[in-house]
Design a binder for these strands. Sequence first.
DNA 1: AACCAGGACGTGA
DNA 2: TCACGTCATGGT
Length: 228
Amino acid sequence: MNYELTNIYNLLLKNYGLQGWWPLTTHDGSNPTKSGSISGYHVNDYSLPKTKEQIFEVCLGAILTQNTSWPNVEKALLNLKTISPIYISNLNNEDLKQSIRPAGYFNQKADYIKNFTNFFLNLKDTPSRDKLLTIKGIGNETADSILLYAFKQPEFVVDAYTKRIFSRLGFFKATDSYKEIKDFFESNLKKDVILFQEFHALIVEHAKRFCQKSPYCTDCFLRAVCKF
DNA sequence: AACCAGGACGTGA
DNA sequence: TCACGTCATGGT
């Protein structure tokens, strides 16, 4: 309910529109996304992910996208013939590695995915953040992505883009900790899952379009309110 | 052809 | 705690 912060959100939303995260390779009743097309977004449908397989897919995507661009993650996901916890659990490590190769860091990520899959198979209901963090391969951002986009919990996701954009805007220092930044957003916004989902997705979009490492400030619609 | 992408972990100070 | 090296493929 911080006015300045809410104002930024409204400007992002006005310029980019609803983002429809988290992208899924399959929707109910539709065909799989073609490789490279990046069309798994589902604008205005907050019922997704719906099935257990879709929830699982969001989790795998969250692990695979660690320091990796989404098109590479999509290639990895499409290489997996079936994205279900049972299937992945029974898949041998070498096959898993070959499938997820396009997403990079495939040796560690294969282990991370195996760890998480075992956890997921024994899961009764929504996991706690602390429990997720005990899994090797699930850090702060991945845990929050899983909770926000797979389990629809109001956990704000902080990534490198969030730090970059909002430190440039002047809300905090780029060196502030994950927890400090997460607390800043959560204490200044209404704890609303849809708001958190769209806000994070909009941040990613703005970082790609304007607020890159070397930013395009000239045409940026946030220039008037930015201290960079 | 260097640079970077929707980070996490292990190590040493 | 915290800064730093490591992990790897693919697009620009």
